[in-house]
Nucleic acid binder design. Structure first.
Lengths: 356, 356
DNA sequence: TTGAAAGCGCTAACAA
DNA sequence: TTGTTAGCGCTTTCAA
C-alpha cells in the first residue's frame, strides 16, 4: 500500500540509539546542577526561580552550571508539589471544525499567555468518549476544563465527580449556574438589518437555516426587532427556513423574487446560503447590490470572497469568544468564579454585496 | 460591550465555594484509600494495578474503598516515577486549518488508543513561538513531538536540545533522517488521469496552483506519467498554473477551451479550482460531464458538493496520514525508530463530474 | 500475602 | 547566605 522512499537510516532527533548504549545520557536533574555548581539542590532551586537570599556570585555559578548541562526543570515534579498542573483540558465536539477552531485559537492564545498548556480532547459527539476523556483529564489533574461545540445550542453540562472549574465556549450549558461564553446572535441579526436600512433598503427578506437551531431563531429575532423599530417587517412574511446550503439559497432567491417584486435586500443566516442567494438572483437577472443587497453571516472567507460579488457579512468574533472563555476559566482557577452566560458582540464586515 | 445575561450566581461544577471553607475536600490519595481499607499504600497500589500476590479478599476491600472515595490515581506522580508522561506535543503551523485538522484527528485517535494525551501548540508560522513551545514541551517531559503543517513542502526540522522522538505529518522535514509521513501527491495525479482515460477521455488539460508548491509539481508529474503511458500528453502543452482560487479556475476554463476545441477533460489541482472551472465551462456553454469531464483534488466536501455538478476528486486520506504519523511516533517512543518519508496513498472519489 | 522503606525531581520550612 | 530535611503521590524492591 504505502510507498516508502528509501533513504539512509538513523534519525536525527533523539531517537534512542539502538545499541545497548554506553552512557545513556539522561535528562539532567537539579542534583546534577547542584553537584556541578558545588552547592545544594535547595540553592539551585532558589537561584533558578529568582528567590532572594542568594548571593549574585552563587546565582551566577548555578545559572552557568544549569546552562552547561542544558537543565530544564521538570514540570511534572513541580506540579506534584504545587498541586497545580498548569494544564487545562479542551473538550470539543466540533471535530475541530469551522466554528470551534477560531474559538480554540483565541483560547489557546490567552491560556498560553498564562503559561497554561492545553490538552486536546475530541469528543466526537460521543458521550462515552467524553466520559473517558474526563477521566483522563481528572487523572492528569488539569486545573480546569473548557468545553466547545459546533452549535450554540445549549448542551447538557459535563458531569464531573471532582471539583474543578469548567467553562463552556460557543456552546452554552443548560445549567444556568455554569459559565458560558457565546456569540450574540441576536445582536448580529440586528446589525445586519440596521446596515441594510441605513443603506436605504426597505423590502428585506431573511433566508436562513433550520429553525431548530437557536442561532437561527436569535438572528431572525434580532433582524425583526430592527425592522419593527423602523416600522417595517420581513419581506415574505417571515424567515424562510431551509438547509445550510448554497442550493437552498438558490431556491430561496427564486421564491422571494416571485413573492415580492419590490424585494431590495436579503439577510441570510449563513454565508453559504448567501452565496447561493447571490447565484440565484444573478440567474434571475437581478443585480447585486444594485437591485438587491445581500448580507451573510459567519464571515467565512472561503464563501464571502468567492461569492460574486463578495459578501457583506456578520463576524461572530469567535477568537474573542475563545479568549473570554479562557480568561473566565483562568479567573475561576484563581478562585474568582463567574456564572451565567456572557454574550460576545458581533461585528459587521462590509463588502461589495451592499455597496451603495 | 459584552452583554451578560443576568442569572443566579454560584457555579455547579467545583468552582471553589467562596468561603474560607470548612473541610476543603481535597482529592483522595492512595493513603486515604489505604487507611479506609486498613492496608498499606503498597497493597493499594498493587491491588489497583492488577499486580499479583494480592488475595482476592484484600483486593476487593481496596477496590471498594477506592470506589467509595472516588479515588483517581495521580498521573503526575506516576509519570514522575516512571519517567514517562504519556503525553506528546502537537506543533502545527496551519492554525489548525483545513489540512492539518483531519491529520490531527487521525493522530489523536491513534494516540488516545495508546493512552497518550496530546498537548496543543499552535506555532502560527512564528519560529520564536515555536521555540517557546518546544521549551514548554521539554519541561513537561513529553514522550514525543509531532509536527504538522499546511503545506507538504519540506520544512527545516525543529531543533531540540534534548533527545525525544519527532515525526513530521503532512509536512516533510528537510532532513532525510527524520521520519515524515505525507500524502502521495504524485499517485493522486496518476489516479485522476487514469480515471479520465478509463472513461474514454483523451484531450485532458491540467489547471492547478502555483508551481512553487511541491504538491503542484508532484500532482502534475503523476498526471503526465499516466498520459505518457497512454501515448498522450497534457492538452494545452502543460499544466496551467495560477492561484488557488475559483476565479483562476473560471479564467483557465476559457483559456483551455480557446486553445483546444477538442478538450474533453480537465484535472484540477484543487477542488476550489475545479469548481471555478465547472462554472467557467458552464458559462461557455460547455456541459459537464457530457462535453468535458472534471476531476478535482482534496475532497473538500464544501466545494465538491456545492459545485454543479458535484465533483469527482482525489482524497488524500489525511486522517490516515495522521494515524500513520502517530503510529510511527509511538513506535519510536517504544524504541523502534524509523526514518525517511512514508507516502500515504490517495484515493479516487467518483461523483457526477465524470459520470459516463 | 502484606508492609516498610526508599526514591522519582522538585520546593519550602527551618537551621546553621 | 546556604544547607538539611521533609514531603508532594505514587511504585517497587525487599523483608517479614
Amino acid at each position: 500500500m504505502a510507498r516508502r522512499q528509501d533513504r539512509a537510516a538513523g534519525g536525527t532527533n533523539g531517537t534512542p540509539d539502538g545499541g545497548k548504549a554506553l552512557k545513556r545520557k539522561t535528562t539532567p536533574t537539579i542534583s546534577d546542577v547542584a553537584a556541578l555548581a558545588g552547592v545544594s539542590t535547595a540553592t539551585v532551586s532558589k537561584s533558578l526561580n529568582g528567590r532572594d537570599g542568594i548571593s549574585p556570585t552563587t546565582r551566577a555559578k548555578v545559572v552557568a552550571a544549569a546552562e552547561q548541562l542544558g537543565f530544564r526543570s521538570n514540570a511534572l515534579a513541580q506540579s506534584l508539589l504545587s498541586g497545580r498542573s498548569y494544564t487545562v483540558g479542551l473538550i470539543t465536539n466540533d471535530s475541530f471544525g469551522r466554528f470551534s477552531i477560531p474559538v480554540m485559537l483565541g483560547a489557546e492564545d490567552a491560556l498560553q499567555a498564562g503559561q497554561i498548556a492545553v490538552l486536546l480532547c475530541d469528543g466526537r459527539d460521543d458521550p462515552i468518549r467524553e466520559r473517558h476523556y474526563i477521566r483522563t483529564l481528572a487523572a492528569r489533574r488539569v486545573d480546569g476544563i473548557m468545553v466547545t461545540g459546533r452549535r450554540a445550542d445549549p448542551r447538557p453540562p459535563i458531569t464531573l465527580d471532582f471539583p474543578i472549574p469548567v467553562v463552556y465556549a460557543m456552546c452554552e450549558s443548560t445549567d444556568p449556574r455554569d459559565a458560558s461564553i457565546v456569540p450574540d446572535d441576536e445582536h448580529g441579526g440586528t446589525l445586519a438589518v440596521e446596515h441594510l436600512l441605513a443603506t436605504g433598503r426597505t423590502s428585506i427578506g431573511h433566508v436562513t437555516g433550520p429553525s431548530d437551531f437557536r442561532a437561527v431563531r436569535l438572528r431572525a429575532a434580532g433582524a425583526e426587532h430592527a425592522l419593527r423599530r423602523a416600522g417595517l417587517s420581513l419581506a415574505g412574511g417571515g424567515p424562510l427556513h431551509g438547509s445550510w446550503s448554497e442550493e437552498w439559497g438558490r431556491q430561496a432567491a427564486t421564491i422571494l423574487l416571485r413573492a415580492r417584486g419590490d424585494l431590495d435586500a436579503v439577510f441570510c443566516g449563513s454565508d453559504q446560503i448567501a452565496r447561493g442567494v447571490a447565484d440565484g438572483l444573478r440567474a434571475a437577472g437581478c443585480a447585486v447590490p444594485d437591485d438587491v443587497a445581500l448580507v451573510g453571516f459567519d464571515n467565512w472567507t472561503v464563501m464571502t470572497e468567492a461569492s460574486r460579488p463578495p459578501l457583506t457579512t456578520i463576524d461572530m468574533n469567535l477568537p474573542l469568544v475563545g479568549r473570554r472563555a479562557a480568561e473566565t476559566l483562568l479567573a475561576s482557577i484563581e478562585g474568582t468564579a463567574t456564572s451565567g452566560t456572557e454574550l460576545v458582540p458581533c461585528q459587521l464586515v462590509v463588502r461589495e454585496s451592499t455597496r451603495v
